[in-house]
């Protein structure tokens, strides 16, 4: 997609499936660019149902969590729904320690995530 460098997106029905280009979402500039690209999906392209597939992600930090929280808020403001899937155990631990596993709807894999979004 034009203008998107940190994300790969595809459409499955009315769900936008997002995959991350970077295995390690670390560099502060990249994190904010990633955030901007995610926010564009919601605010400019009006995507209501987002599935973020983390299968390629091996590392993230609290900066990335901050961008994901902002995304969750924007999706809610646009009466949409956000689901995270395919999170590796170490990364899931990061969500669990910070209790963000309570804030986000986290599903095991893409089919489960799609089912949750399609039921919404």
């Amino acid at each position: 997609m034009a203008g998107q460098r940190r994300l790969e997106t595809s459409e499955v029905g009315d769900v936008t499936v997002v995959r991350f280009v970077d295995r390690k979402i670390l560099d502060v500039t990249n994190i904010h660019e990633l955030g901007r690209e995610l926010f564009q999906l919601v605010e400019e392209q009006n995507r209501k149902k987002l599935l973020l597939n983390f299968s390629t992600v091996e590392f993230l930090s609290s900066e990335t969590l901050g961008e994901l929280i902002k995304l969750e808020k924007k999706v809610k403001q646009h009466t949409g729904k956000l689901v995270l899937t395919n999170i590796k155990p170490e990364i899931y631990e990061v969500f669990a320690i910070t209790r963000l596993n309570k804030l986000f709807d986290i599903r095991d894999d893409e089919p489960e995530g799609l089912a949750a979004l399609n039921a919404a």
Binding site: S62, L65, G66, L103
Partner: peptide
């Protein structure tokens, strides 16, 4: 404390929490 319900969406505290864990 970023794990308190009212702070879950706040920006600060998660880095320190992760280091400690």
């Amino acid at each position: 404390d970023c794990t308190e319900d009212e702070n879950l969406e706040k920006a600060s505290g998660r880095g320190i929490m992760l280091m400690r864990n």
